[in-house]
Simulated assay, not measured.
Amino acid sequence: MTGETEPGAKVEVRDPGTGEVVCETVADENGVFSCGPVDDGSFEVVVIDEAGNESDPLPVTVDTTVPEAPTAVAVGDSVEGSAEPGTTVEIRDAETGEVVCSVVADENGQFSCGPVGDGNYDVVAIDPAGNESAPSPVTVDTVAPEAPSVDHTDGNGVSGTGEPGSKITVKDEDGNVLCESIVDADGNFTCEISPTVPDGTLLQVISTDEAGNESITWVRVGGPAIALSANEVRPTEQLTITGTGFLPEETVSAEVHSQPVSLGSAAADAEGTVVFTFDVPADFALGAHTALLNGAQSGQVSAEFTVVAPDQPLPTPEHPQVPKAEERASLPITGGQISGLLLAAGALMVGGLLLLRRRAKEQEETTA
Results as ranks from 00 to 15, higher is better:
T208F: 04
A230S: 10
Q321E: 11
L263T: 08
T251R: 10
V308C: 04
L247G: 13
N213I: 04
W218I: 03
A227C: 00
S229G: 13
Q259V: 12
A225L: 10
Q300Y: 08
A296G: 03
S330D: 12
V233L: 01
G272Q: 01
G335R: 03
S258Q: 08
N231H: 10
P281N: 04
M349V: 15
L286I: 08
A282D: 13
M349Q: 05
A347Q: 06
P320H: 03
G336M: 03
G299L: 10
L228G: 13
A296I: 05
I216M: 11
L292Q: 08
G287C: 11
A282N: 10
V261C: 01
D279E: 10
R234M: 15
A303I: 06
G295S: 08
E271F: 07
L239K: 02
Q259L: 12
A345V: 14
G335L: 02
E210R: 11
G222P: 05
P235L: 03
D311T: 09
L263I: 10
F246S: 06
M349I: 15
T251E: 14
S330W: 03
G212I: 09
V252G: 08
A230H: 09
P260A: 04
Q312A: 12
A267W: 04
D209K: 07
L348N: 04
A230G: 05
P260V: 07
N231T: 13
A267L: 15
P320V: 11
P224N: 08
D279R: 10
S302A: 15
W218E: 15
G287K: 03
F246N: 05
A288P: 06
V233A: 08
T208Q: 12
S265L: 06
I241A: 00
A345K: 06
A325D: 09
L314T: 14
A345C: 05
N231I: 03
A211N: 08
L228V: 02
T208I: 12
E318T: 15
L343C: 00
S215N: 06
P320D: 10
G245T: 11
P317H: 00
F305P: 15
V322G: 08
G243T: 09
E250K: 05
S253W: 00
G264W: 00
Q312C: 05
G264E: 01
R234T: 13
E304S: 15
D269T: 09
L293Y: 09
V307G: 13
Q238G: 01
V261T: 13
P281A: 09
G243S: 12
V275T: 13
A211M: 09
V274E: 03
L342K: 09
T316W: 01
E327A: 11
P323H: 03
Q337M: 14
T240M: 07
M349G: 12
V256Y: 02
S229A: 04
L286D: 07
P224S: 13
L342T: 08
S265T: 10
E210C: 00
T273A: 13
E255Q: 12
A268K: 09
E318M: 11
A309L: 02
T251V: 09
Q300G: 01
P224I: 12
T242H: 04
L341D: 06
F278Y: 14
S330V: 12
D311Y: 07
G351D: 05
